[in-house]
Design a protein around this nucleic acid. Sequence first.
DNA 1: AAATATGCATAGAGTAAATAGGTATCAAAA
DNA 2: TTTTGATACCTATTTACTCTATGCATATTT
Lengths: 95, 95
Amino acid sequence: MMILRSLKIKPMHGYALVQHIQQTSADLLNVEEGSLYPALQRMLKAGWLDAQWQTSSTNRRVRTYSITAAGKKHLVEETSRFEAMLKGIQLVLAN
Amino acid sequence: MMILRSLKIKPMHGYALVQHIQQTSADLLNVEEGSLYPALQRMLKAGWLDAQWQTSSTNRRVRTYSITAAGKKHLVEETSRFEAMLKGIQLVLAN
DNA sequence: AAATATGCATAGAGTAAATAGGTATCAAAA
DNA sequence: TTTTGATACCTATTTACTCTATGCATATTT
């Protein structure tokens, strides 16, 4: 969900995603590369992402991921599922 | 976290926990027994819970779980970790 | 020249959830 | 009266994911 949301802002490569999530979360979240890359593979396979090998501004080979239409649809669904679950959790915890 | 929070209200047996979480979450959450009972075993082993076999008002053998002091401590820690993570997620999603 | 940061990725271990069973008692309905 | 539904316990297997550890390569800074 966070990967899709991040890529909706703009396409990014893996390492940039790690930085982006860490920064926007005010250092509260840390995505390990060992979790991220397998997740990106799964999401490519699911059709939620596209990937293009490119050459970065620093002259380095990078793999840039973009969100697809199916990915945007999935993000909406996933977010609403997440919010429902969260509401449930908060009801139980607040009780 | 939800199990500990529920048992902090009052000791309950497994089946009652399922009902309680379903009801307080306004049917948003459903805890499968196949997830609950193994979780209760793990939590007993961790020392967060106590269990006593009892006879219910309906004359049935039930295993009643209570939260321990260590369980209460863990609940506080776990809740604060959860809230930090949630804040991080929301920052990323709101971005 | 060496260390640090950037960038890709996989292998293996560990953990947990979901699925799918299995047992037994009790009350109510068919 | 039998059988269905609710109550109550639990485990085994599969599936899935995360974390740790590791490997490679290039660019930049010290």
